[in-house]
Lab assay of single mutants.
Amino acid sequence: TGQSYENMVTEIMSMGYEREQVIAALRASFNNPDRAVEYLLMGIP
């Protein structure tokens, strides 16, 4: 849902990432938050 997506974005942003980076990582990871954080740390393949 939209609210849980926003919660994911906010939670990952709280780790120090910009909203645009978080959204790009979530898009690349098909909204998998664990993989999105991994992409933010290691780069999107």
Rank of each mutant, 00 (worst) to 15 (best):
M42T: 13
V22E: 02
I44V: 14
Y5M: 11
A28N: 07
Q21P: 06
I23Y: 06
Y17F: 06
R27N: 04
I12L: 14
Q3V: 08
A28P: 02
L41S: 15
A25W: 00
V9S: 00
N31C: 06
D34Y: 03
Q3L: 10
V37S: 07
Y39H: 08
A25T: 01
L40D: 02
R27Y: 08
N7W: 06
M8S: 07
I44E: 15
A36L: 00
R35P: 00
E20V: 06
I23T: 12
L26D: 01
E11V: 03
D34N: 15
V9D: 00
N32R: 10
I23M: 06
E38L: 04
N32Q: 10
E11P: 02
N32S: 09
I23G: 07
M42F: 09
G16D: 12
Q21C: 07
I12Q: 00
M13I: 08
L41K: 15
E20W: 05
Y17K: 00
E11L: 03
Q3D: 14
F30G: 15
E18D: 11
M8E: 04
R19M: 01
V9R: 00
A36F: 01
V37Y: 09
N7K: 12
Y17A: 02
E20G: 10
A28D: 12
N32P: 01
L41F: 08
E11M: 05
T1F: 01
M8D: 04
A25L: 00
T10D: 06
S29D: 03
Q3P: 08
Q3A: 12
P33C: 05
S29V: 04
G2V: 11
Q21D: 12
I12W: 02
E38Y: 07
M13C: 05
V9I: 08
I23P: 03
V9N: 00
G2D: 13
P33A: 12
A28F: 10
Q3I: 13
A28K: 09
Q3M: 11
I44C: 12
Y39A: 13
P33Y: 11
G2I: 15
E11Q: 07
V37R: 15
M13W: 00
V9A: 03
G43H: 07
N7M: 10
V37A: 08
A28S: 10
F30R: 15
G43Y: 05
V22S: 04
A28G: 05
G2A: 13
F30H: 15
L41D: 13
Y5A: 07
L40M: 04
E11Y: 06
N7S: 11
N7L: 08
R27D: 13
S4M: 14
T10K: 11
P45E: 13
N7I: 12
Y5L: 06
P33S: 06
I44G: 15
A36K: 03
I23W: 03
Y17D: 01
T1V: 11
E6S: 07
M8L: 07
R27P: 02
N7A: 12
S29A: 10
E6C: 05
V22C: 05
E6G: 04
R19A: 04
I12G: 01
R19L: 02
G43K: 13
M8A: 04
I23R: 10
M42V: 08
M42W: 05
R27Q: 13
T1N: 03
G2C: 11
L26W: 00
Y17Q: 00
E11R: 08
A36N: 00
E20F: 02
M8V: 05
I44Y: 12
E20I: 05
R27K: 15
